[in-house]
């Protein structure tokens, strides 16, 4: 057990060190999603969006939940990228030739991605606060939002890692990634409530796990515990199943790649 924690600590520190060496990358990962979506999109559609439809005092307050979950989505789907490069340049082999527990590398990645994502979510909520979005459920609500983000993020990171271990080249990986992320956003309740979507889009969006996550985060920000709790309970159940499926697939891909 002591050895296991020594490995995981060292591997997680490696990810932290890498990020801290890439100053620009760090800045952009922290700033980009909220900059583009929350500030620009949120303010841009302030008057174009119908408050009757969004059921909120401002479009930006409606959008905050979407941006939070989009950040989880992007980070999660990109979570396997570093392992992909490690696999391609042979660093992963070097790690795997040491007497570490086979799961340590993956676990370190989950810890790192989850921590960074949670920090970003807090930054987004802080920026939203500056634009007058004050979560009505307070700190406990923020903690619940982080929990939902983590649960969703684990499954997405597992998908990303499974892809990293399965693809033939990193070109394939990034094509799939680019292909997946925008439809996931548009076919969810991130930008527009389901009820206001064209029928077929609303229908598809129901099956998107992102929609479930957003529908639980949004009432935590806008409405209050009474409205939020049923959704939170539901999303936790959905995410347990989602994570289980993703982790199972991820584990299979990992075993195939590592032997």
């Amino acid at each position: 057990m002591k050895e296991y924690s020594q490995e995981i600590r060292a591997l997680t520190m490696r990810w932290v060190r890498r990020l801290s060496r890439e100053k620009f990358s760090m800045l952009f990962t922290l700033v980009q999603p909220m900059l583009f979506w929350l500030i620009f999109f949120g303010n841009l559609f302030q008057r174009a969006a119908d408050m009757q439809v969004t059921q909120s005092s401002s479009y930006i307050s409606f959008l905050t939940a979407g941006v939070v979950v989009m950040t989880v989505l992007n980070n999660g789907l990109a979570g396997g990228v570093d392992l992909l490069f490690d696999k391609e340049n042979g660093f992963l082999e070097r790690l795997m030739s040491t007497p570490i527990h086979r799961t340590s590398v993956i676990l370190s990645r989950f810890i790192f991605v989850t921590t960074i994502t949670s920090l970003q979510v807090l930054v987004i909520l802080a920026v939203a606060w500056l634009f007058g979005v004050h979560p009505v459920t307070g700190l406990a609500g923020v903690a619940t939002i982080l929990l939902i983000g983590m649960m969703f993020g684990v499954g997405l990171t597992a998908i990303s890692m499974a892809m990293a271990f399965s693809v033939k080249s990193h070109g394939d990986f990034f094509s799939v990634l680019g292909f997946l992320s925008l439809p996931m956003i548009f076919l969810s309740s991130a930008l527009v409530p389901l009820a206001a979507m064209p029928g077929w889009m609303g229908f598809l969006a129901q099956f998107n796990p992102m929609t479930w996550a957003i529908d639980a985060v949004r009432p935590l920000i806008l409405q209050g515990w009474a409205e939020a709790l049923p959704h939170v309970g539901m999303v936790i159940g959905v995410m347990v199943v989602f994570d289980a499926l993703c982790l199972y697939g991820g584990a299979r891909a990992f075993r195939r790649a590592i032997g």
Binding site: R17, R18, F91, T98, P99
Partner: peptide, 23 residues
């Protein structure tokens, strides 16, 4: 392993420190 199995962002010492923990 072959040449490029190195983490460009870590220093030489950090490579050895990482492996020391893995061993």
């Amino acid at each position: 392993p072959q040449e490029r199995a190195i983490d460009r962002f870590l220093t030489g010492r950090e490579h050895l420190e990482l492996l020391a923990d893995l061993y």
